[in-house]
Structure formats: structure tokens, C-alpha cells
Simulated assay, not measured.
Amino acid sequence: MNIKIILLLILLSVSHSSCSQTTHKTDQIQHANPVITEKKRANSSPIAFNIKGTWKTECGKEKPSIEFFDDQSAVMDFDTKSGTLARINLNIEKNNDTFNVKFDGLTGVTKGNPDLEWVNFSREETIAEIKTVRENTFEISWFGFYNQKSKKRNSQENPFAITEKNVQLVRCN
């Protein structure tokens, strides 16, 4: 009987020691993770800005608007000086914290729009630049279309606010 009690005490002591070591190791791992997590946070890049969606100066307005399909392509709807709808395809190039917007041709809706010299507009020159203001707001700086024939910018008035060069747009969906 004494041998059974001694063996039981030895087993309990070994078991307690093993659990204590496991708990100690678990505590060490749990305390180590916040440091690793903090390092990851400190070294990680900023949260990516999601540009996808429809953007306007004021939600509820029909035009002008930009609809981003992803961070590389979009369409823009606006009225030209004569009040005719223009819908253009845009090519987007991300450059650090800005998006460079380039003219990428007319959509079928705009093919008959004679207000601007669409065939002479460069697809290589930036027509606008977008910078993040906050999560659902960005600022668009409008430069106008670059006419390769005349070597000048056309339609330099910002379609979102004719008297302003820089305009804030909000996500509307």
C-alpha cells in the first residue's frame, strides 16, 4: 500500500511538472506573439486604398462621375461645353500614394461627340491625378487632355467643378 501511495505521488509530481513546463512555454509564446505582431505592424505597408466604386462631388447627382472597376481601369461621364454627354475609358497607373489617370479612348456612347478632338488626344499623358484624402474621399487634380497635334492641353476646366483645379470626390456606393 505504501508503494502505491509513493508511486501515485511520483506520478502526480511528474504530471504537475510537465503541465507547469507546458504552461510556462505557452505563456512564453503568448508573450512573444505581441512583439512579433508589433514588428509586423511597424514594418508593414499602409493599408491599401480601395478605389473601386462610383465617385462624385455629391452623391445623387447624375454627372459628372468616375466609376473605377479596379485600380487600373475606369470610365468617366461628364458633359462637354455644348452639354453633350462624354463617356471616356480611363487607364489608371498607381504611383505610391497617387493614381495617375490617362485617357484611354471613347466608349460607344460618345463616338458621335464632336465637341473635342478626341482622335488627337494622347493616351500616354496624364489627364488627372488622384490623391487619397480619407477612406471614402479623394482629391482629383485635373490637367486636361493633351492634344498631340497642337501640343497643348484641351478641356483644362475640371469637369467636376469648372472653376476649381482640385476637387474632392466621395464614394457613392
Rank of each mutant, 00 (worst) to 15 (best):
N95M: 09
D97L: 10
Q28L: 14
V75R: 12
P114A: 13
A74I: 02
E125N: 15
P46H: 09
S18G: 12
Q28A: 14
N91A: 14
S65C: 03
S45M: 04
E125P: 00
Q72F: 01
C19G: 13
K52A: 13
I130W: 06
H16I: 12
N95W: 03
G105D: 08
K56F: 04
G83T: 05
F78M: 10
S17K: 12
T107A: 13
I36N: 09
E125F: 11
G108D: 15
K111E: 15
E93T: 11
F99P: 00
I36M: 12
K61L: 11
D104A: 15
L85I: 08
G53M: 10
G105H: 08
K111D: 11
E38K: 14
H16R: 02
I36S: 10
A128F: 08
K81M: 11
H16K: 04
K52I: 09
Q30Y: 06
K111H: 05
K63Q: 08
S122F: 09
T26W: 09
G108N: 15
I47R: 12
K94D: 04
R87W: 03
F121W: 07
A48Q: 11
T84N: 14
F103W: 08
T22M: 15
V35P: 00
S13D: 05
A74G: 01
K94R: 15
E117S: 13
V119P: 09
E124C: 01
T80F: 01
T57I: 00
L106T: 02
D115A: 13
N113T: 06
F78G: 04
P46G: 06
F78S: 07
K131F: 04
G105R: 09
P34K: 05
P34F: 04
I92L: 05
V35R: 13
K56A: 09
A74L: 03
E124W: 03
L116I: 02
S13Y: 06
N113W: 06
M76D: 01
I51Y: 02
L12R: 01
N43G: 03
L85P: 01
P34T: 05
S73G: 03
D104I: 04
A42W: 06
F68Y: 05
F99T: 00
N50C: 02
S15K: 02
L116Q: 09
R123L: 02
D115W: 01
N89G: 02
E58I: 01
L90E: 07
T84R: 11
L12S: 07
N120A: 12
K25C: 07
T110F: 02
T84V: 09
S17P: 00
P46T: 09
E62A: 09
K39A: 14
